[in-house]
């Protein structure tokens, strides 16, 4: 089985700073992979390689192969806007647009030229259901997205990402700005979403990594130190540095 996503000897530089050092990584479809490690270790940078968000940073240079469904996306002739439609992203802080709940979810569809009301309504409803938000907002779709709670906003952002039907979803510390109850809702959601999507999630929360992911990759100063089944990483890490990190001795 070909892996859903793969990197081969991925090198990334911010100017003179060598931020990712030869990462060889692969993840299968319909799995959740957690990326953990101390701040500045390169895990978020690694995540952003898969939708080429690093392109937006001046002086960022990426070498090596990044494959999605066997196709190398680290190619300067690639249409990145098309790529980003297939790779959804959820950010650290909930960032819904100051528009209505409906228009937030419909945004990705509209930029794809879908404007027919019936199709929009269908897809918005489907995405909100997938994001486990439909029941809470179905009567208030016209309400401003800024008026719902932070946890609801983050699930709205997940729905917004899902509406364009990506196959890969990147989550950059999606619960770090949320309270515990909202966090557990989002975690439950991640677990369900794996049926349809492949998910990469950056997290600082060890318990979260243990709860939601199938596999875990530990990053340290630009290197992927250890990558294995989550249960293995948390119960029987092979490398001392990994063990020190997950037991809270540093980081």
């Amino acid at each position: 089985m070909t892996p859903k996503i793969e990197t081969k000897n991925l090198q990334l530089y911010y100017g003179a700073h060598h931020a990712l050092k030869g990462i060889d990584f692969s993840a299968n479809a319909n799995t959740v992979t957690a990326l953990i490690g101390p701040s500045g270790c390169g895990k978020s940078t690694f995540l952003r390689c898969f939708n080429r968000m690093n392109d937006l940073i001046d002086g960022c240079d990426v070498e090596g192969q990044i494959l999605i469904d066997g196709m190398n996306i680290n190619d300067r002739y690639l249409n990145v806007d098309e790529l980003r439609k297939k790779v959804g992203m959820v950010f650290q802080k909930p960032n819904p647009f100051p528009k209505s709940i409906f228009e937030n979810v419909a945004y990705g569809l509209r930029i794809n030229g879908i404007n027919e009301k019936k199709i929009l309504e269908e897809k918005v409803e489907k995405a909100l259901k997938q994001a486990a938000l439909w029941e809470e907002v179905k009567d208030n779709l016209k309400k401003s997205a800024m008026s719902i709670s932070g946890g609801q906003q983050q699930r709205l952002c997940i729905a917004r990402a899902l509406a364009v039907e990506p196959s890969l979803v990147l989550m950059d510390e999606p619960t770090s700005a949320l309270d515990p109850i909202s966090t557990s809702k989002v975690e439950e959601l991640i677990y369900q979403l794996k049926e349809k999507y492949t998910i990469l999630i950056v997290t600082h929360n060890m318990q979260q990594a243990a709860r939601v992911s199938d596999k875990t990759a530990f990053f340290y100063i630009g290197e992927m130190i250890e990558y294995n089944d989550t249960t293995e990483i948390f119960t029987n890490p092979k490398i001392e540095r990994t063990q020190n990190y997950i037991t809270g001795r540093f980081g």
Partner: peptide
């Protein structure tokens, strides 16, 4: 205008 709005839009594949 907060950059997070621009990133959200770009992330959804908007030009």
């Amino acid at each position: 205008v907060d950059d997070s709005f621009r990133l959200a839009s770009i992330g959804l594949g908007a030009t």
